[in-house]
Nucleic acid binder design. Structure first.
Length: 630
RNA sequence: GCCACCGUAGCUUAGCUGGCUAAAGCGAUGGUUUCGUAAACCAUAGACCGCGGGUUCAAAUCCCGCCGGUGGCUCCA
């Protein structure tokens, strides 16, 4: 609603003719005049529809505000359509006008001029600084409307699950979960799996400690919170960016090598697009929404939208299936509830490698899923997280699917290599009928999913993705949704938590060698060796080397390097310059070894293997470095 | 989003039953030191005590609101 307030000597009007939207009025309303009053010209707008009460109360507030400043006791309400170009329907307008008059009448003398009539009027404005004011009253979206929650999210609340453990030989043990008690399986050796069940299906311990990775990600100058953004949108310092970049390179390379075609797609999508709209309703997540100059859009929460929109325009034959698409989404967005966010574990903006495979039929989908599980295992192992030892498998399926495809589920468990948690849904709430996840169980018994693959039976039809089958018929493919490593940030979370676990066990915490921001640190004992060290450093081309050329004592330099978890610390003094050997402190072995440069180079090359490589993300000389955190 | 807790120099913390110029270590800067495998020495700078409002003669300290964070609920990659 727009209002124009004029402190008037008088306002005088008379109706001349009715318009098609005129309200019915008594004879006495056809003329009116008021002296020493506040004239309130109003236009009720389209966006006020459905929010009558709110508009009235905010309107009254605005008017009272001015009335008090001007110290008047008479108010003339005057409908004036020309204040707005998008007027509301007449009923809403009359309702609001009447409401305003009624509320204001409690304390003031009010005259309401009729709505929907042509009128002649005379007005005298007082002309002082406060005498003319225009205001817009906007009732914010969300104040009255409910938050939009997908049907899948709502349905989830009523979902009933059966839980069980499947052994590698296919034996299924149904579990009884009562509070913290889990019965029906002898967990004995496998505390993580037991914690996992309790986390998924039972009651958790209360009053847990903080996750270790949050301090680590800051202390190592990897990642930090960004107060200037929305919660869950982080900043990456050079070392963190490098580590994340290497992980991104590695996962993408492996996924391309599996046969997925890498593509790039937009991060925002039209909320009114029919296929997308239905998709949203079948996905259990909250979206970021925003307005562009032309549309209402939501931010992608995975790569599905871009890849499906692309796939629907592709010409596909059964001969080309399975078709594999891939995108590293930087970023995917989910408007997670405020209290769900933590460090690198749960974010609102995250980087997810996402690959979809279009499959001819269920048999092909099953085969493809197995191929992809091998890919995922290889990716995760390559990163430095051991599968199956360090992650727990869960397979979730609808009751019908589980019963009809038990053989496939047994194969998945066998292929994974250790007993898995099974969840059976009593009904299908999502677009997928089967999904599995690799879960990391942190030291406090909390589970976080990394890898996941899903069998989707709905989106092919919803997006009108078709292939021509042998018989010449157009058919919708089965679609698999795989994240071959899980979100990159969550991989970093896992690596940091595992390092904290090493420390807990009394070992020195480490980063996987290929991810260590500095792989080799040269420590000259005094300035005299600096030139020699510079020559040595140039000899090493296959590793990230930096040089501590600061004015600190040797022990201080060692200490600094240890605190950075640098895998190889090379101390060079006069002895080394003369002998040609190097004194190498190896973190992993917690020992100090004498070796010639050539041998060090060999060891480094071996450690690196064929993992992706990037240069040192900071100046080579420590004296040139700025501090990011503290 | 809900419940509980937290927010003091770049970092880690002291002060917080209201009362002098808010204290220290690390780090930074300047100087001394040129050093042999996890902390050399001296000095200097550095604080809208998260933000806004309130109570009070007086607020880092008490109260309210907001922002940020942690844990739990719920949920996920």
């Amino acid at each position: 609603m727009k209002i124009l307030l004029i402190h008037s000597d008088y306002l005088k009007y008379e109706v001349t003719k009715e318009t098609p939207v005129a309200e019915d009025i008594e004879e006495e309303m056809k003329k009116g005049e008021m002296e020493e009053c506040l004239s309130v010209f109003t236009a009720v707008e389209e966006k006020d529809e459905g929010k009558v009460d709110k508009v009235i109360s905010e309107g009254v507030e605005e008017i009272l505000d001015t009335v008090e400043k001007l110290d008047v006791d008479k108010i003339m309400l005057y409908p004036y359509a020309h204040l707005s170009s998008s007027l509301s329907d007449p009923d809403t307008a009359v309702e609001i006008l009447k409401g305003l008059a009624e509320e204001l009448r409690e304390d003031f003398k009010v005259h309401r001029s009729p709505f929907g009539w042509y009128k002649s009027f005379k007005l005298s404005c007082k002309g002082h600084p406060l005498s003319e004011l225009s205001k817009e009253i906007v009732v914010e979206e969300g104040e009255e409307e409910e938050e939009m929650v997908s049907k899948a999210l709502e349905a989830e609340e009523t979902m009933e699950s059966t839980w069980g453990i499947m052994d590698v030989d296919g034996t299924f043990h149904e579990l009884k979960v009562d509070g913290k008690e889990v019965q029906g399986y002898d967990f004995n050796e496998n505390q993580d799996l037991k914690d996992f069940v309790r986390y998924e299906a039972g009651e958790k311990e209360s009053g847990s400690a903080e996750s270790s990775h949050i301090d680590l990600m800051r202390n190592h100058e990897l990642v930090d919170y960004e107060e200037g953004s929305d919660p869950g949108n982080l900043r990456f310092y050079p070392k963190g960016r490098m580590m994340k970049g290497l992980l991104e390179d590695y996962v993408s390379e492996k996924t391309r090598r599996y046969g997925a075609m890498e593509i790039e797609s937009p991060i925002m999508y039209d909320i009114d697009h029919p296929a997308l709209k239905k998709h949203l309703d079948r996905f259990p997540a909250r979206q970021y929404r925003m307005e562009t100059p032309d549309k209402n859009v939501f931010l992608r929460f995975a790569a599905c939208f871009g890849q499906f929109m692309m796939a629907r325009d592709m010409t596909l034959s059964y001969r080309s299936l399975p078709v594999r698409l891939y995108e590293l989404t930087r970023y995917s967005f989910r408007a997670e509830q405020r209290g769900e966010l933590t460090g690198l574990r749960r974010l609102r903006a995250f980087t997810m490698p996402d690959s979809h495979a279009l499959c001819k039929d269920l048999d092909q989908a099953k085969d493809e899923m197995m191929t992809r599980m091998d890919l995922a295992k290889s990716v995760v192992n390559g990163i430095g997280i051991t599968v199956p030892d360090e992650l727990e498998l869960v397979i979730r399926a609808t009751q019908d699917y589980f019963e009809e495809n038990r053989d496939q589920i047994e194969k998945l468990v066998k292929n994974y290599g250790k007993p898995a948690l099974i969840e059976i849904w009593d009904d299908q709430f999502f677009y997928f009928i089967l999904k599995y996840e690799f879960n990391f169980i942190d030291p406090l018994g909390r589970a976080s999913a990394l890898v996941t693959d899903q069998v989707d039976v709905e989106q092919g039809e919803r997006y009108d993705i078709n292939y021509v089958d042998e018989d010449g018929e157009e058919k919708n493919p089965y679609i698999l949704h795989l994240s071959p490593s899980g979100a990159i940030e969550r991989v970093m979370f896992t690596l940091l938590e595992q390092a904290a676990m090493q420390e807990e066990r009394g070992e020195k915490p480490t980063f996987p060698y290929w991810l260590a921001p500095t792989q080799v640190r040269f420590v000259p004992i005094s300035d005299d060796q600096l030139d020699h060290v510079k020559k040595l450093e140039k000899e090493i081309e296959t590793a990230r080397v930096d040089i501590d050329d600061t004015d600190r004592t040797v022990s201080r330099k060692i200490r600094a390097a240890e605190k950075e978890w640098i895998p190889f610390i090379v101390v060079v003094g006069q002895d080394e310059v003369e002998s040609g050997d190097l004194s190498v402190r190896i973190r992993e072995k917690e020992e100090q070894v004498e070796m010639p440069l050539e041998e060090l180079k060999k060891v480094l090359k071996e450690k690196q293997g064929d993992m992706p490589y990037r240069e040192v993300p900071l100046p080579k000389y420590l004296s040139k470095r700025a501090t990011f955190v503290g």
